[in-house]
Amino acid sequence: MKLIPQQKLMLITNYTFEEVLELLNTNSASNSYLTGFGGKARPFKGVINGNNFKLIKNKIFRNPFNPCIKGKVIPFLNDTHILVTFRLQYHHAFLMVIILTVTGFLSLYFLAFANTFEITLLLFPAIFTVVALTISTGFKNECNEAANILKLLLNAQTLPQ
């Protein structure tokens, strides 16, 4: 299990290279905090440069598991491939490392000052496992949601890796 989760995905669509970029452009807003006012809500916000893009899901509320979506559009003869990487945003990844560090120090505190050594020895792995599973489950759920939106938007299929 990785401490900072990451997920890769290859999508294949029958749209042309230009159509894929146009769809990404029309369905993503700029990285402004004012994107929710005075316009149609778009599923993503971010930047598209050439054949590369960096997007996040456009949500009303803050979600620490909302992935940063980096992608590259690759034209082929009959179709277009989109290589997508989902990662935790850096400030959220830093927060997750801090949370795991604090749980480690709490476990060491209990280990040093508790009367029962055996129970406290099991406490750190239990807390660490619960926190790590919470992080990975929340991240995977958000990645699946973002991937489904991309698949619907681009009428794409997932290429097995």
Score class of each variant (00 low, 15 high):
86 F>C: 04
51 N>C: 04
73 V>F: 01
91 H>P: 10
78 N>E: 09
91 H>V: 10
91 H>E: 05
82 I>D: 05
89 Q>M: 13
85 T>A: 13
65 F>N: 02
61 F>I: 14
78 N>Q: 08
74 I>E: 13
79 D>K: 10
86 F>K: 06
44 F>P: 05
47 V>A: 09
70 K>T: 15
41 A>L: 14
85 T>D: 03
61 F>S: 13
43 P>H: 02
80 T>W: 07
83 L>Q: 14
61 F>R: 15
61 F>W: 09
75 P>M: 08
81 H>K: 14
87 R>H: 05
85 T>F: 03
89 Q>A: 11
76 F>M: 13
87 R>F: 04
89 Q>K: 13
81 H>N: 10
71 G>M: 00
63 N>R: 10
52 N>D: 05
57 K>Q: 11
80 T>M: 07
71 G>V: 01
43 P>F: 00
83 L>G: 07
82 I>T: 03
50 G>A: 02
55 L>W: 01
51 N>M: 06
80 T>A: 06
59 K>P: 05
65 F>E: 00
58 N>D: 08
59 K>T: 14
93 A>E: 00
87 R>W: 01
72 K>T: 06
84 V>M: 05
89 Q>S: 08
44 F>W: 01
47 V>F: 03
55 L>P: 14
93 A>I: 01
56 I>R: 14
73 V>P: 00
76 F>I: 05
43 P>S: 02
56 I>M: 07
70 K>C: 08
78 N>I: 07
